[in-house]
Amino acid sequence: MARQSNFMVALGVLSALGLVASTFWDAPQINNWLFRASTLIMLATSWNLMANAGLVSLGHSAFWGVGSYAAIMSANAWSGSILGTLVVALLAGALMGLIVAAVTGGLKGIFFAISTLALSEGLRISALMLPDVTSGAVGLFLRQDLRPSQQTLYLVAALAAVASVGVAILISCSKLQFASRAMRDNEAAAQMLGIAPRRQRMIIVAISGAMASAAGAINAWYGGYLDPEVAFTLHNTILAQIAPILGGIHTLAGPVIGSFAIIALSEGTRIWFGNMEGVSQMTFGLVLVVCILFLPRGIEGVMHRRKKQQATAGTPAPALATGRGGKS
C-alpha cells in the first residue's frame, strides 16, 4: 500500500468534512446523491477489505440484506432508533461474517467467491420462503412514527462513511495489514511466519461484514421499504466490486473515488439515457471490463502513475502491473 502523500491526506480530510457539512445544506438532489455515495463508500470499502486479504466476495449483497432486515425488524419490534438498530445491524453483519469465515475455513479464490454467491442467493430465497419472519415478498415497511428527518439520515450516512474509511485506515496501519497482504499473496508462507491466517481471516471478514451490513441498514431506513428482492439484489454485489475496481483496488482512496465516480456515472446515464433501457447496467459492465483490461489499478493508479511521471521526469513510467505473482 503506497504511503499517502500529505496532499492526499489533506484532500481526504477536506472531503470528509465537506461530506458531513453538506448534510446541513438543503439541496435535495445533491443530498440524495451524496447519501448514495456514502452508503456505497461503506460497501466498497468493506469489499476492498476482503479483497485485500485475497477474498473475492461475490455475495456482498448478503451482508447488505442481513443488515437491512436486522435494522427494520428490530426498529419495528422494539421502537428502535436509527443508531440503536445500526448497532444491531453491525452485530448481525459481524456475526454472519464470522460464520462465513469459520465455515469456509481455508477456501480461497474461486471457491470462496462461489460460496459467497451461494450465500447471497440462499438468503434471498430463505427470506422469501419465511414470510412469518420477514414478511416475505409482500414487503416490510418501517413504522411511520419511527422515521427520522431527512437531515438525520444524511448525517448518519456521512458520518458512517467517514468512519468506515477511518476503520480501513486503522487496519492498514495495524498488524492486520501484513496478515492480509500475506494471505493475499501466499498463505503457506504466511503460516510459516507465524501469522494465523484462519483467525485473521475471521477478523477481517467480520469487520467487513459489519460494515456492509451497516450500509444496508442505513439504506433501509432511508428507503423505508424492504422485500427480499430489494435487500439481496445482485445490483449491490456488482456495485460493491465496481467502485473499488474503478477507483483503485487495494488502496484506501480507491473505494471512495470509485463510489463518487459510480454514482456520477449512474446518474449521468439515467439523465441522458433514461429512456433507453439497459444502458446504465451495460455501462457498469463496460467499466468493469475496461478497468480490468486496461486500468487494473483504477483511477487511483492512473493518478499515481502521472504523479510518478512528474516526480521522476525523464525516466520512463513503470509498466502497470497486471498481476502480483498470481497463481493459475
Partner: peptide, 25 residues
C-alpha cells in the same frame, strides 16, 4: 490468463453484464 483470480472473475462478470444488457436493448 496470468492475472490474479479477482481480475478473471470480475472480467467475465463484466462481460456477462454487458451481454445481458445488450440483449435487453
Amino acid at each position: 490468463l496470468k492475472a490474479p483470480h479477482v481480475n478473471q472473475i470480475l472480467l467475465t462478470f463484466g462481460i456477462g453484464l454487458v451481454l445481458q444488457n445488450v440483449a435487453v436493448m
